[in-house]
């Protein structure tokens, strides 16, 4: 199996901040708005370098979505940044009507997603957001796995004509994808070829899936490992091809089973090539306070649980 080198832990939100800062210097149409979370979203550099294009909206997320829609109508490319829960569930109807149905080119930067938000607890640990967002017609949903990929995805989101929900996290995680990559929206990323079982992973679970694949290879189980960074539009071709090849599919994500990537893939495979599946995700539960790694283990979202799932067919 190919080596994946962790070049040092970095948070994915800083990847967003770096991508936004680069966009600030390369695309004068890019704007940034935040609901009192400039620092948490790592928007400081953009705000400092382009104060006229940065809008602190205050703790008023619904208004922030609407303002961004108005700016997008005028031809700008606004990125709105807040915690994922407040960027999705809290403003679902504003995103539905003012962004998706109105076809406005708004980019939603959703940080601190999932259980790895940690100590703040379940009020802030959104595990439903990908489901809510992927249900909206016309919405693109991206869930990158590390700093480099998040930076590249941010730049790709700006170039995409239409609404994008870009989901990333709070803690430092291994940074292992190429620094100079170009992110292709809608394209699955093959990390390893294997014939025995497929693992589709997204976000923070990709690194865990790489560890799991190593363990499985040592046990003689070849893993077809695929990073699904774009949740929607799903790379159906890649999904079906791998499922056909291995006949066994594990999906790993930091999300509820309901509405998640696993359900999305199950829907595709049920129609194209019904395949036995296992879901490494959280089943119908809220999170709780704790350290990210501790929570990932307790809620079954780590390499050990992926190995277990892969061996359970």
């Amino acid at each position: 199996m190919k080596e994946f080198v962790d070049t040092g832990k970095k948070d994915t939100r800083s990847g967003f901040g770096a991508g936004l800062a680069e966009l600030g210097n390369t695309n004068p149409k890019v704007l940034a708005l935040t609901a009192d979370l400039k620092g948490s979203l790592k928007m400081d550099q953009f705000a400092a370098e382009h104060p006229e294009r940065f809008f602190e909206v205050g703790i008023a997320e619904a208004n922030m979505v609407g303002m961004a829609a108005g700016m997008a109508i005028a031809g700008y490319i606004p990125f709105i940044g807040t915690f994922a829960n407040f960027a999705s569930a809290r403003v679902l109807d504003q995103i539905r009507q003012s962004v998706c149905y109105s076809q406005t080119n708004v980019k939603i930067a959703a940080s601190h997603a999932g259980i790895t938000l940690g100590e703040d607890g379940a009020t802030h640990q959104t595990l439903e957001d990908m489901g809510l967002m992927r249900m909206l017609p016309g919405m693109v949903v991206i869930n990158p796995c590390d700093y480099n990929q998040t930076k590249a995805a941010t730049i790709a989101a700006a170039a995409w004509d239409g609404p994008v929900y870009l989901r990333f996290g709070r803690p430092g995680v291994p940074n292992f994808t190429p620094a100079d990559q170009t992110f292709e929206i809608g394209k699955a990323i093959k990390l390893n070829d294997g014939a025995d079982v497929t693992v589709f992973a997204t976000g923070h679970l990709v690194w865990e899936a790489i560890q799991a694949a190593r363990i499985l290879e040592e046990k003689g189980v070849g893993v077809d490992l695929i990073d699904i960074a774009t949740i929607k539009p799903l790379d159906k071709e890649a999904v079906i091809a791998s499922a056909r090849k291995t006949g066994k599919v594990v999906v790993a994500e930091e999300h509820l089973v309901a509405g998640g990537l696993g359900e999305e893939i199950a829907g595709v495979l049920a129609a194209a090539c019904p395949t036995p599946m296992r879901f490494v995700a959280i089943d119908d539960k809220f999170g709780q306070s704790g350290k990210p790694a501790e929570l990932m283990a307790a809620y079954g979202l780590d390499a050990a649980h992926i190995v277990e799932a892969a061996l359970s067919f």
Partner: peptide, 25 residues
């Protein structure tokens, strides 16, 4: 028609965004 409306309370925010965009440009 510039924008969908029906679910209430959203248009003022949109108009503010459009007005700020006019100032920017």
């Amino acid at each position: 028609v510039n924008q969908a409306a029906g679910s209430l309370g959203q248009g003022l925010s949109v108009a503010i965004g459009a007005a700020l965009a006019k100032k920017l440009s």
